[in-house]
Every structure is written in structure tokens, then in C-alpha cells.
């Protein structure tokens, strides 16, 4: 194990959680499932945080039930139907 790292005292910090991850400006993506196709570049999609509006300009096709990876309000890729983590990191 890497033991050369100095050990610092554990002090209280705010409980970390998803809200402390900047989901928009980091290299982060949220898996979402399309629940409604609104128009040719907009869908409503369900993520672990709820249903949100997602732009799908960057996808060739999109249909209800598709899984997509969302970053900053835009679907940046479609995903195969097998399960993947709902969000990262």
C-alpha cells in the first residue's frame, strides 16, 4: 500500500454528495432514458435526478425508451440498451 502519503487529521467536512459535483463543467455524463420525443431536436428524459429536457441534435435518431448520455443539457451519445451506471463520477 502507498504509505508514504502524510496522514492528516480527519476534521469535519460537509457530507459530500452529488450536488458537490459540477455536472455541467466537468467531464461528467448522466445516463438518461427518453420518455417523450418533443420535437426533432428535443426530448424529455429521465435521469437519476428526475425528468429533464434534453437536446438531441447530436444524435442521428432518438425514440422513446432509448438510453442516452447527457452532458450540459445535450445528449452527447446514444447508449446500448444494457445497463450502465446512472451517473458519474
Amino acid at each position: 500500500m502507498n504509505a508514504d502519503r502524510p496522514v492528516r487529521p480527519a476534521v469535519s467536512v460537509a457530507a459530500p454528495g452529488p450536488a458537490q459535483v459540477c455536472v455541467t463543467c466537468s467531464d461528467d455524463g448522466q445516463v438518461a432514458q427518453v420518455v417523450e420525443v418533443v420535437d426533432d431536436h428535443t426530448v424529455r428524459a429521465r435521469t437519476s435526478a428526475g425528468v429533464q429536457t434534453v437536446d438531441t441534435t447530436l444524435l442521428a435518431t432518438v425514440a422513446v425508451g432509448d438510453r442516452v448520455l447527457v452532458h450540459a443539457g445535450t445528449a452527447i451519445t446514444d447508449l446500448p440498451p444494457d445497463p450502465a451506471p446512472e451517473s458519474s463520477p
Binding site: 455541467t24 463543467c25 467531464d27 461528467d28 455524463g29 437536446d55 441534435t57 447530436l58 452532458h71 450540459a72 443539457g73 445535450t74 452527447i76
Partner: peptide, 15 residues
Amino acid sequence: VGFETTSPSTAVTLQ
């Protein structure tokens, strides 16, 4: 700001 993860979203917005 952002790498190529984020710049497509900005590109969509400008378009």
C-alpha cells in the same frame, strides 16, 4: 469552459 465533452453543447447553442 470545458473540453470536447462540453463544447458540442455550446456548438448546438450557437447553431
